[in-house]
Amino acid sequence: MNLALKPLPVAGFAAAALAAVAGVWLLRHFDPNVARGLFPTCMFHDLTGFYCIGCGMTRMLHALVHGDVPRAFSMNPLAMSLLSVSPLLAAWRLGWRPRWLHGVVAVLAEPKVWLVLLPAYWVARNLPWFPFTLLAPG
């Protein structure tokens, strides 16, 4: 727990908090759903026409700061799921380690899981058939 007293994590936390405030402010005032707006579009999608793993993340956050959780989830289900567990992971890092969280952390901390999950998600969101179309933004 003495982690929080070191200057570097404090500076990092302050920077992250500042970025979060700026991000929320921008998302409250600008809409990433319009074409050629303020927010950058995905370069991978612009160049290839395919969705990448991060596609829909800005629209997800936009929906989230406007309180529309189902829409946020539909924009990028994987990113939304990870965002949901991230407070638990942060708590884990700070030393809060309940028994039931051990399994979740063990899976998420295994690099091989990501080496399979990320490419699989990448391909799956671009498949034009029903269960997979849910993974695409929108």
Binding site: P40, C42, M43, F44, L47, T48, C52, I53, G54, C55, M57, E110, P111, K112, W114, L115, L118, P119
Partner: peptide, 26 residues
């Protein structure tokens, strides 16, 4: 890796190499 691919270009995919080496550490 995700940010590089979205913000820059498909070249951002080389970030996968970092995940492969993460896996090697374990």
């Amino acid at each position: 890796t995700v940010l590089a691919t979205c913000l820059c270009c498909p070249l951002g995919l080389i970030g996968i190499v970092a995940i492969v080496f993460s896996s090697k550490v374990n």
